[in-house]
Design a protein around this nucleic acid. Structure first.
Length: 267
DNA sequence: TCGCAGGTGGTCG
DNA sequence: CGACCACCTGCG
């Protein structure tokens, strides 16, 4: 089986990448590697320290697949050291969070899959979100292919009963039908127009699926961080968004990931 | 048993 | 507008 290896990675840690809340399809293996699917490819990723620094091995993976899929997916061409330095300057809270989640990368995910995943995520918990996505995949996709909008648009809420999406099933079908009729969203207004998509989910879609790295999704965990570590009223989401815009600027998405990872994994 | 979990949409005042 | 509140489901 063909493998691809890249050496000397910096600011890269699979645990950080897959536990900062951006994706739901990667599972940690007993040996510490991760297996998951993106863009129709099921692979295993492993990181080892070697004489060549941090070494990432992807299996199976050709040179072409690495260049076309995994390199952009893992955001390998971005200087995260510079991002952490800029965010941490004058902000000891962020410096601490970025030090703990030093290997985070914002994945460049498929837009439709991101839309579906985060519609499912609303008012839900992570294990159940993963289960829902798993069952949706099993019901309607191929072994490795995420069901497209044309597939989901044909389903009824009853068809989706076994996926146990709850009231989110009707959002999903309606969103699929809208995308079939009008195409994928291309801006914030179109994202927010999708059924089951409010400000939080929209920001996740824009950040993880559309590469808008200034987006700062405020969920209950980020609310907790902004309250406990920045002293902002826990109910005042608007104040948190404003703070993020003013202090994190175009790096808001990275800041959100460091803070989310920190409150979830290090407190 | 009941609140909560990566919120949203609908309905009030 | 802004403040509630119902809502599928499953776990502690």
């Amino acid at each position: 089986m063909q493998t691809y290896t890249i050496d000397n990675l910096k600011d890269f840690n699979l645990d950080h990448i897959f536990t900062c809340g951006q994706c739901f399809r990667w599972e940690k293996q007993p040996d510490g590697s991760y297996t998951g699917i993106a863009f129709g490819r099921r692979v295993n990723m492993r990181v080892e320290s070697s004489a060549y620094g941090e070494r990432l091995t992807i299996t199976p993976c050709t040179e072409e697949e690495f260049q076309q899929i995994w390199r952009p997916y893992l955001d390998l061409d971005r200087d995260y050291g510079a991002i952490k330095a800029e965010l941490s300057a004058g902000d000891p809270v962020m410096a601490e969070a970025a030090a703990h989640g030093y290997g985070i990368r914002i994945l460049k995910q498929d837009l439709w899959e991101t839309i579906v995943s985060f519609i499912i995520s609303q008012n839900n918990n992570i294990p159940r979100i993963k289960g829902c996505i798993e069952r949706l995949w099993a019901l309607t996709g191929g072994p490795d292919d995420f069901p497209g909008p044309e597939t989901l648009a044909q389903l009824t809420v009853e068809d989706l009963a076994e996926v146990r999406l709850g009231y989110r099933a009707k959002y999903l079908v309606a969103a699929a039908q809208k995308v079939c009729a009008e195409g994928l969203p291309t801006n914030e207004e179109e994202v927010l127009a999708l059924p089951g998509v409010g400000p939080k989910v929209a920001n996740c879609i824009l950040l993880f699926g559309m590469g808008q790295h200034d987006r700062f999704p405020v969920d209950v965990w980020v609310r907790r961080v902004m309250h406990e570590l920045y002293g902002i009223n826990e109910k005042d989401i608007r104040a948190m968004t404003k703070y993020a815009r003013e202090h994190f600027g175009n790096l808001g998405g990275f800041a959100q990931q460091y803070l989310f990872h920190y409150i979830r994994n290090c407190q």
